[in-house]
Structures are given as structure tokens and as C-alpha cells.
Design a protein around this nucleic acid. Structure first.
Lengths: 416, 416
DNA sequence: AGGTATTAATTTGAGTGTCAAAATAAAAAA
DNA sequence: TTTTTTATTTTGACACTCAAATTAATACCT
């Protein structure tokens, strides 16, 4: 009577149909959760014979298993009942870690994509050295493996999400608020430390991966995920795969220029989208808008909360801050639509609470800025997910690289 | 003593390595121009045996041929001399047509990518009906086939480039300055009229295709081509293939917003990049900047020429027009870099003559607007090509769809 | 000139992956 | 129980690709 939801993109990348059938079958099974062989054959347009052959191999390898599934009610009930296949969850376990400047989160996910356990610790005021960062990761892994009951030696891969600029392919952190140094080869060092394959990426890309593997993006081929927190990030999924630009760095929506000679950004330039809508941008205006006493509020979060309250109460200055931010957000979204033409945009992340930013009139303004010749207005969805989301994205990152090595022996899909 | 330069992308799309070997071999040969079998085997990492088998098939089909080539000088000269293979030029002929509001151009290109003949006619002041447009195409084809000596019945495919918004996959023109109606199924109607496969696309995409097939883009995997004429267009090549967004429409750089509540654009919106740097944008400011007498100049082209002269003479108002346009161009370019991260940007097209727009300080300003964490500054190249370029792009479009059908019997790579 | 070294291309036989068709298995319906 | 229906496996064949052996064509050497 078991039933699984599956994970991973629902539709195989288009032109990649010609890649090893073993892998296609495995990914189909993982995507479906539970699926009988006939369905796999039908879905991939291959013969049942091949499915039998290849799945038996995968079962022998311990990657798939037969599961007694309840008969679908829609079925006529006649004939030999199908026997469902599923990914063998205990085949592998991976850890997903999300590091941030507030708190660090970690999850253990099994090979079928189920979250076994999660754990979070507050940000440690450390020295911003690589060693301390890796110590933090180690602590987290110890905590979460303990909680999950999965021995640390049973982990097969680790995925880590870091804020800042990350070069996914090489595993190098170009710059991060968590590290004092630039150009840190984080993934290689972590690999050494934990004696496990380690993949790292930008946190915005992780949210995109989370949507692609576990969320609403599973059935979409092209979509954008935009996160607004301390900075503004974007992950873009194209043809069911994360797009990382030609040079391996992600898309930097936060530093798209929306105003010539505009507001000053953390990056030192002027007119970046981030300089209008990120936390720190709102906070620095808040100090001006609110009266002296309010300016004493400690911490950005509390300050913004207060600003939000004021705006709701009708404080004009406070409202205008959100208004302007909303308008620039609309410009940013419209530019993404005009350049990428995604089928959907997700505004996603843990702190989607400043409803002024995600109000209907912001979306309406975006519509007026989008070239109106396209068929339909691009749909925008607001996903207010918890912090766990990011860690799951990191787990998805680890899972995808793990399956790659599992199924075709180390042949990576990345650039040669 | 023959030698050919070849055409088509130099490097095969990455993940597509798993596609029919026949096609890979063919494309390799076409890319190289002339190449011996050994080299093909080495380049594709397959056995010489397979190359022999498959090329002999292709030769039997009349798609490839053996060519007596001069021995490479670098060669030691020992051993059996290689016999070069090349695409059989007379296997097929395609027509490429570029329609614009100034003049229409057409080329005949053989299967190996050689331009056999080209022809141009001035824009006919017609009714903007589909019929008239197809009449124009027919006239062009008659002219250019006559000139080339290739019988019209020998044409295998036609590619047409149209300004405006074009949905490449379906062959539908959403809107074009050349057509009174919106949503015209141009490609299907042309297919019927000429009884040939017809592919159409946006003119900016054609320039990108031209760079990819015949130009400097052949050895790049990811690059942007930006054209500035009546409007601003962009074509983006990703992984050696033209990117068309999720919905099949191209990327609309011209309508990216660079200024909230900014200058009025042809499209009815405000702040579009086009509204600052396209011909009409410069022209409407020129009327203000130049003295009364100059404002009488007939025609946008002449007016801009005059403006350009004035700026060179030191006219401050004229200079400021180009200056501002240049700065906004820098913003547009920087945004493309920040979002797509291409390895190169081509400023390409037939009218790259306003050197103020393509001056070094514009590019310098772009560099200051690009996120400075990335390795190198993105290279920008200015390509001042003639009008023929567009038609060659259209021919490339026809060629690519033709080879697709030739080599795997109608199985298109496009979305299923 | 004739033999040898060298490189290119082809032939051959084997291995692999995939499939169609036939056979088998497991259930409900008659 | 037998028949019908659907799922899975088995079997034999076909197509693709390759490694190794063979043949072809040239330059170098004596």
C-alpha cells in the first residue's frame, strides 16, 4: 500500500533523449516515484523488453527495487497486475547544507528524495576562514546524521549552498559574505576534508534546483526563480536543466542595472536592482523615513519589520519606500521576461513577507512593462517556503551529481 | 588543389554528442570544408571503420564527395596520402531572403555553404498584404535563381528573415512592420506558394545564425549578437545553438527597460532600450538639436548622417545625443552580460557607422557596469557587415533545417 | 629500381544494445 | 475450470560500432 511522489524533473531534457537508456529509465522511475515497467516503456517510447533488461540490471545494482503498490482505481482490474518500480531509498544518502549569515541548515535525503532529517544551527560568529566554515559544516553533518540515524559513513555525496558568487563547475567561491578571502576552492577542500564528493553552488541556484526537483517547477521546462533577501538572486532553468551562463557563474539579476547613475549597491556600482529592493536597500531608507527613535532599532530584520508596520498604518514615507522598491522589482521581472521568456517566474525564498513588494499592482506593472506581443502574460507565483527549502536544494545538487556518477560511471554532463 | 573553408558551427553541441553518428560526421565535414576520414575519426573519437562505413553511405546518397586536396605542408609527406572529403555542393541549393523596409535581399547558397549569387531590390511600396509580400519573394527568387544559373526547381529549401516579432517554430509572424495584419502564418503560406519547405525567423536571429555559420561565432559556444538599426535586436547562441526562449519568440533586447518612466518607445511603452539608441530615437532628438534648416532634411538616414557630421564638428547638442545613447547602450550590454554571461558580444549589422555609439568609452562604461567578480571582461566586437549578411543568415536557417530532414528523414530537433 | 617504413582506408569478425514476436505469468470474468 | 486480459520475460534477429587484421598508397633509403 505504499505510494511515493517521486522527485526530479518530470520531463526528460529534450535533446538528451539520446543518452544512455539506463539513465533515462532510472530518472523516469525516480520522477514518478512508483511506476510499473509498462508505463516506463510507454513514456520513453521503448520496448518493454528493454525495460525488463535494464531495470533488472538496475535492481541488481541495488538502485531500483520492486514495490508492491496498490492497484490504481482507474484500472479495469483485469489482467496481470503491474508491479511498480521505485528508487531504492537506502541505496544512498546525501547531505544538503545551506550556509548563510543568519543560520545554517542541513538535511539528510535518501536516494529516492525523501527527507530523513533536518537540523539548523545559528550562525557562528567565526573568523570567516575556510577552516571555520568547514568546521561548521562538520558540526552540522554530525548533528543531522545523528538525528537521522544514518551513519556518516553511509553518506555518498554532499551538496553545499553558499551565498555570493560561486562557480559551480569548478567548486570555487569567487566571493562570499561568509568568507574573508576571495577565490576560495571550497568544494575541493571540502572533498578532502569529508572524503566525499562535494558539489557547491550559489544559493539562488539552489532554490531553483529545489523547485525543479521537489516543487512546482518539476513539470515546467523553462522557468525563473527569483529570491529577495539580503541580496537579489536568480536561478534559471532551461530545458529542465539549471542554466549557469557560459562561464559557469550564475545569472546575476541582483546586479542588473535598472537606473543609470542610480542608487549605490553593495558591489560598489550604481543602479543595480539589488540597490533598490534588497533588505539593506530598504533598511537604509527606513532610517530616513522613520522618526529618530525608530532608527535606533537594532538589526535589519527588526527595522524592516517596523517599517512594514508603519507602511501598513499609512505612513506615507514608509509606503513610498515599498512602492519604489516594488516598481523597480517590476522592471527587473519584466526584463527577465523580455530576455528569457520563461513560462513561469517563481518569487521564492524564506522571507516573502513584505507584501508590499509582492502586491498585485507590482505584478500589474510588470505586465505593462513586458512586450505585449507575446501570447499570454507570464505567470508569476510567490512561494513562501521555509529555510529548509535551501538545504533541500543543496541535497538535490548532491543527488544529481551522485546519480550521474552512479549511472554512467563518473561521466559528468558538465563542460569537458 | 581545391580548398574550402566550410561552414556551420565548428564544435558540436555538447550533450548532443549522442545523436546519430551519420549526422555528426556530416556536420564535421561541413564545418571543416575539406577533411580526410582519419581526421573525422580523431575529431569525433570514433573508429576509422565507422567513418568509412558511414561516409560511403553519405557519398552514395550524394551528400558528400571525395575531393583531391593538396597535401598539407605540415605533413611529413610519408605514408598513404589522405583523401579529403567535402560536402557535395551541388547536392542541394537553398535560397535565403531578407525582407526589410528599405530593400529586400536574396542569396542562393549551395549545400556546402558557398554563395552562388545574390540580388537585391528596393522596397516596393506595397499594400503590406501577405500576398504582396509573397509576390516580392517570388520576384526575388526568380531574379536570383536566374543570376545564379540554378534552376528554381533545384531549390530544396527557403529561409526568410522578417523584421518584427516572429515565432520561429510555428513560422508565424506575430507582428511585423511589413505586414498590416498581426498573427500571420507566413511560413505555412510560403510553403504552399513555393511548394518547398520554408523556415522564417526574426532578422536579429538571422544575424546570429550568420555569425554562427559563417562568421566569428563558429568557434564559440555562447555568444550574443546585437543589431542596432531601426530597432534593437538580439540573437543569443547557447551551446552552439540559437536560443529562442521558452515560447519560441526570440530575446527582445530592444524592449528591455533601462529607465523607469523613460523615453517613449515605438511599442507604446516607456524606457525601452530601443527608445534611446535606435535610429528613430536619435532622429527625433536630432530635430531638436540641429537648427531649423537641418530639420528639413528628408529621411531618417540623411538626418542621422547630418547629426553625425555635426557631432564630429563639435556640436555639443549633437554630441550629447550620441553620448546619452552610448551610455544606455552600455547599460543594455552590461545587463546582457550580467544575465547571460556570454563569452563574446558581437555588435553586428549593416549600419555600424555611428562611431560615437561604438566608441571605446561606451565599452569602458559597459565594463564598469558589469559585475566585476567575473574572470575577464567580456569581449565586444563590432562587425560592420553588408546587407548580404542577413540573407546569408536566412540561407543558414534554410540549410540547417534542410540537413536535418536530409540526414534523419524529417526528424526535427525542435520541440515535440 | 626495389625494399622498407609510414600513414590512410577498408575489410572482417565480434560485441553490444535494442526490438519484435513469442512465450510465460498473474489476475479477473465467464 | 476455462477464457480473457494485461504485465513481464524470453528468444532470436537486426543494426551499430569497434578492434584487429588487411590492403592501399606514398616517401625514404640503399
Amino acid at each position: 500500500m505504499e505510494s511515493r511522489s517521486g522527485c526530479g524533473p518530470l520531463i526528460a531534457p529534450l535533446n538528451d533523449t539520446m543518452r544512455p537508456l539506463r539513465q533515462q529509465i532510472f530518472e523516469r522511475v525516480r520522477a514518478a516515484g512508483l511506476i510499473p515497467r509498462v508505463e516506463v516503456a510507454k513514456a520513453l517510447g521503448i520496448s518493454p523488453a528493454s525495460v525488463t533488461t535494464l531495470t533488472s540490471e538496475l535492481i541488481d545494482q541495488g538502485l531500483l527495487e520492486e514495490v508492491a503498490a496498490p492497484r490504481a482505481t482507474s484500472d479495469s482490474g483485469r489482467g496481470r497486475p503491474p508491479v511498480a518500480l521505485g528508487v531504492r531509498p537506502e541505496a544512498h544518502y546525501v547531505a544538503g547544507i545551506k550556509l548563510s549569515d543568519r543560520e545554517h541548515t542541513a538535511v539528510i535525503v535518501d536516494f529516492a528524495g525523501n527527507v530523513i532529517a533536518s537540523e539548523a544551527i545559528a550562525m557562528v560568529a567565526n573568523s570567516k576562514s575556510v577552516e571555520d566554515l568547514l568546521d561548521t559544516c562538520e558540526t552540522l553533518i554530525d548533528l543531522v546524521t545523528e538525528k537521522s540515524g544514518v551513519a556518516r559513513t553511509r553518506l555518498s555525496s554532499i551538496g553545499i549552498g553558499v551565498p555570493g558568487f560561486v562557480e559551480g563547475r569548478s567548486g570555487r567561491v569567487i566571493w562570499s559574505p561568509l568568507l574573508a578571502n576571495k577565490m576560495v576552492d571550497l568544494a575541493p577542500q571540502a572533498r578532502e576534508r569529508f572524503d566525499l564528493p562535494v558539489t557547491i553552488d550559489n544559493d539562488a541556484n539552489l532554490v531553483a534546483l529545489a523547485e525543479l526537483w521537489f516543487g512546482a517547477g518539476r513539470e515546467l521546462s523553462d522557468f525563473a526563480v527569483i529570491t529577495i533577501e539580503h541580496g537579489v538572486g536568480m536561478g534559471y532553468v532551461m530545458n529542465h536543466r539549471l542554466f549557469r551562463g557560459a562561464e559557469g557563474l550564475g545569472t546575476e539579476l541582483g546586479h542588473v542595472k535598472v537606473q543609470l547613475d542610480g542608487a549605490l549597491c553593495r558591489c560598489g556600482q550604481r543602479g543595480c536592482l539589488e540597490a533598490y529592493i534588497a533588505d539593506y536597500a530598504l533598511a537604509r531608507e527606513a532610517a530616513t523615513a522613520l522618526d529618530q527613535s525608530a532608527a535606533d532599532i537594532q538589526g535589519t530584520a527588526a527595522l524592516l519589520e517596523h517599517l512594514h508596520e508603519e507602511a501598513k498604518k499609512g505612513n506615507k514615507a514608509a509606503k513610498s519606500i515599498f512602492n519604489r522598491a516594488g516598481r523597480y522589482l517590476a522592471v527587473g521581472l519584466a526584463n527577465v521576461v523580455n530576455l528569457f521568456d520563461p513560462s513561469k517566474i517563481f518569487l521564492s525564498g524564506g522571507r516573502m513577507r513584505y507584501d508590499f513588494l509582492y502586491a498585485n499592482d507590482v505584478l500589474a506593472e510588470m505586465d505593462t512593462l513586458v512586450l505585449n506581443t507575446r501570447h499570454d502574460v507570464t505567470a508569476v507565483e510567490v512561494h513562501s517556503w521555509g529555510d529548509l527549502l535551501w538545504a533541500r536544494g543543496a541535497a538535490a545538487l548532491a543527488l544529481s551529481s551522485l546519480t550521474e556518477t552512479c549511472l554512467n560511471g563518473g561521466v559528468e554532463t558538465g563542460t569537458a
